[in-house]
Amino acid sequence: MANLIEIKGVTHAYRTKSGPLPVLDNLNIAVPEGEFAAVVGPSGCGKSTLTRLVAGLMKPDQGEVWLHGERVTSPRKTVGMAFQNPVLLEWRTILENVILPLEIVAPRMPQAEREARALHLLEMVGLKGFDSKRPSELSGGMRQRASLCRAIVHKPDVLIMDEPFGALDNFTREDLWQTMRDLRAAEPFTCVLITHDLRESVFLGDQVFVLSGRPARTQMVLNVDLPADRTLDILYQPKAQDMLHTLRDQIRIAQGRDGEMH
């Protein structure tokens, strides 16, 4: 299968007062269509920069980002984004929040059709009956669910998530992993997930990319050879445990390199 996302030799540095700060160094990532790529790495290694590059929100100093065989130079309508902060609009109801991308991407779509699509998604993530509530009336986990619906309501080719579950408690997070798994089964999309949580990367990912410390390059790629309909139990079985060990060692190596530099 062709690669939907291809990041080829991307190098990027931020200009700061004390000179250029390199964050990405010859980074290579390829994600085939429909696959789920989890990206892990030490703090501050440039993972968030990666999401902004794929979304076309910024251009790399060197290297290329390709989506669907087209080079990304500006934002595209076929991308969905979710962040650690659900960034729901407080003045809109949950339903109106989920509809927001459709107002931009499909301005001619009839309102009834938009609402039907949004309600369908809300039901899938377990928010049935909450569509007319305001974001402030929902718990953190529920807000993040609504944020996920908004990210995929316009059927994007690529879903980019930047530590979307980072601020949630463990059990809520595990619930959302399962929601994510079910959403993917119902609505196929290609996904890039930036995370700090190794268990999350193994549970959700088809591939796990380990980034080195800053400036980040691809240190290792792990193929997660587990069935698509994973349950939480699988994380406690030897195969997944081995992968978690491997990843943990890789992170240690990544941090070590980081340590030498400072």
């Binding site: 934002p75 960034v87 931009i104």
Partner: peptide, 18 residues
């Protein structure tokens, strides 16, 4: 305004006015 708010619409190609 937090940049994320801008990004959710900017990533969809929305104009500054929108």
């Amino acid at each position: 305004l937090e940049p994320e708010y801008r990004d959710i619409l900017r990533s969809l190609g929305a104009s500054r006015l929108t």
